[in-house]
């Protein structure tokens, strides 16, 4: 079994356990081991773009160094962790940033030059495992389920750095759901921002952002939404009940839908951790008893 270093991050250990557990379980089924870093710390949750900000780069880089003990590839799941770790890594290794790197190294025990490759679990599924192989392991096809894949900001931008997918029309998650038998629905707000990062400081503005996105998702004819980001999940899920019109769009982590199709235990799926209860929809589609 191939194994990759795996970084869960803080939110996946607490509020978003299902994102994490479903990933580990599905990886197992697909013949890949996600080997958690022996020790890890918070990535910082937001990438500091300030050019001289050493203090906030130490944390993510420590994780990248730790990953080296397991493999050259570090798999992430949370969109924010992916964004922060990948960009911190690129910034450190960027040509011309040698002085910065030297200064940063004063705060770390191990010399490091950026050789850990930060990837997202979606990329592991697509490039290491292959969507065809995922498809072969489907035991419960998501047939008939109309899913809006919501990438949000952190997966796709800055595209020049992340090179994850087209920032204006990402399709990687859609392709995965198609392989699982679901019907991906296209909508123009796949990469729009839900306002998550200002949720704490300016909840009223974040609410408006999220609601604009929700309206757009609903208009696309989607029955449910899938995301990679705990912040998006929370925001899109939570904001719906505050809206004058009730769309009742359950929002899943993509790993939950993957787990459902691969037939993992319902306890791991943890479908109770949602504001908008997804069970009625899944029952209606015959995907749940």
């Amino acid at each position: 079994m191939t194994s990759f270093a795996y970084y869960p991050g803080c939110t996946l250990y607490t509020k978003s356990k299902n994102l994490d557990l479903c990933a580990r379980e599905t990886a197992q089924i697909l013949g890949v081991e996600l080997k958690e870093l022996e020790t890890w710390n918070c990535c910082g949750a937001i990438f500091s773009t300030v050019t001289d900000d050493i203090a906030n780069q130490v944390a993510p880089i420590r994780n990248l160094i730790e990953a080296q003990k397991i493999s050259n590839k570090l798999v992430t799941l949370c969109a924010a962790c992916y964004n922060v770790l990948k960009r911190s890594n690129l910034y450190l290794a960027k040509a011309g940033n040698e002085t910065y790197r030297k200064r940063l190294m004063n705060f770390l025990d191990t010399e490091y030059n950026g050789k850990t490759e930060v990837v997202h679990y979606l990329e592991t599924l697509k490039y290491d495992i292959g969507f065809d192989n995922v498809k072969a392991k489907v035991v419960k096809s998501l047939n008939g389920l109309k899913v809006a894949s919501y990438y949000g900001c952190l997966m796709v931008r800055p595209s020049e750095e992340l090179k994850f997918d087209d920032p204006d029309n990402p399709v990687m998650m859609d392709d995965l759901f198609a392989a699982l038998g679901a019907t991906p629905v296209d909508f123009p707000f796949k990469g729009e921002c839900c306002g998550g990062y200002i949720l704490v400081d300016k909840p009223e503005v974040a609410t408006k952002c999220a609601q604009t996105v929700i309206e757009n998702m609903a208009a696309s004819g989607a029955e449910c939404v899938a995301t990679t980001c705990p912040l998006c999940q929370y925001n899109i899920d939570n904001q719906q009940k505050m809206m004058s019109k009730q769309y009742n769009l359950p929002i899943f982590y993509f790993t939950q839908l993957l787990g459902l199709a691969l037939g993992i235990d319902e306890k791991i799926l943890n479908l109770n951790n949602h504001f908008i209860d997804p069970k009625p929809l899944l029952k209606q589609k015959g995907l749940l008893q």
């Binding site: 939110t11 949750a45 912040l231």
Partner: peptide
């Protein structure tokens, strides 16, 4: 909100602000 929202939101907010 502190009880409900993901950690990520707070860490980011306090890191940023």
């Amino acid at each position: 909100f502190i009880l409900d929202a993901p950690q990520q939101a707070f860490i980011a907010a306090f890191r940023k602000f």
